[in-house]
């Protein structure tokens, strides 16, 4: 998994509540049994003029020249709600998104981000609105995220601390594969199982 320690990038605001994973990647764009080839389908319903088409919709923010190479998204409440499709995160990662700052996330989406090198940051709506307001020229006015220090730094240099679990932070900082980490606890699992299978024998 791609590591993330600090990141500075073009930051695009999508300040709307409840942006769901169907919007992030419509099901019709999930054409292959693969985690790859999904970047083109990112936000397809908004990004292109028609379903299945590839003509860019000039009104959609990520299609604007000023937001070229966007790598940080700002949103609002409940970002990534809805379907569990990890394709939404694979599509964001392939497009080049490294950080998403929102006031809350769909729980499954949050977990999917941390397993794919994308940092989900929870900050209050008013802070996010202010982060967006300070960006005049998106190509120059970049937001910075420092995962080591657990702060978001606005264009004007204000620091906004955020909370992330130790496990998620380490996974992103070091680019760890969680399955590999858990497998080191194999003995704990076997011990638990030997007691549990007696206690709840009907599940075996």
């Amino acid at each position: 998994m791609k590591k993330l320690v600090t990141h500075q990038g073009v930051t695009a605001p999508l300040l709307r509540t409840n942006i769901d994973t169907d919007a992030i990647i419509p099901s019709r764009e999930m054409k292959l049994v693969s985690k790859k080839g999904l970047g083109e389908g990112l936000f397809a319903g908004w990004r292109y003029t028609e379903a299945g088409g590839r003509t860019p919709n000039p009104d959609f923010i990520l299609n604007k020249e000023a937001y070229k190479n966007t790598s940080i998204l700002l949103s609002s409440k409940n970002f990534g709600c809805g379907s569990s499709r990890e394709h939404a995160v694979w599509a964001l990662a392939e497009y080049g998104i490294r950080v998403i700052i929102a006031s809350s996330f769909g729980a499954i989406f949050y977990g999917n981000c941390t397993r794919n090198g994308i940092l989900p940051v929870v900050l209050p709506d008013e802070v996010i609105v202010e982060l967006a307001a300070q960006i005049e020229d998106p190509q120059k006015d970049k937001v910075t995220v420092d995962l080591a220090e657990k702060v978001v730094i606005s264009v004007k240099g204000e620091k906004h601390p955020f909370i992330i679990s130790k496990g998620c932070r380490e996974m992103l900082l070091e680019g760890l594969d969680q399955i590999g980490v858990t497998m080191r606890q194999g003995a704990d699992i076997v011990n638990f199982e030997s007691l549990y299978s007696k206690r709840r024998s009907w599940l075996y």
Partner: peptide
């Protein structure tokens, strides 16, 4: 509900974080 990576984790280890 979980993502695909978590499903892999559960299948490989019978556990989830």
């Amino acid at each position: 509900g979980v993502g695909s990576s978590e499903a892999e984790h559960a299948m490989a280890t019978n556990t989830l974080v």
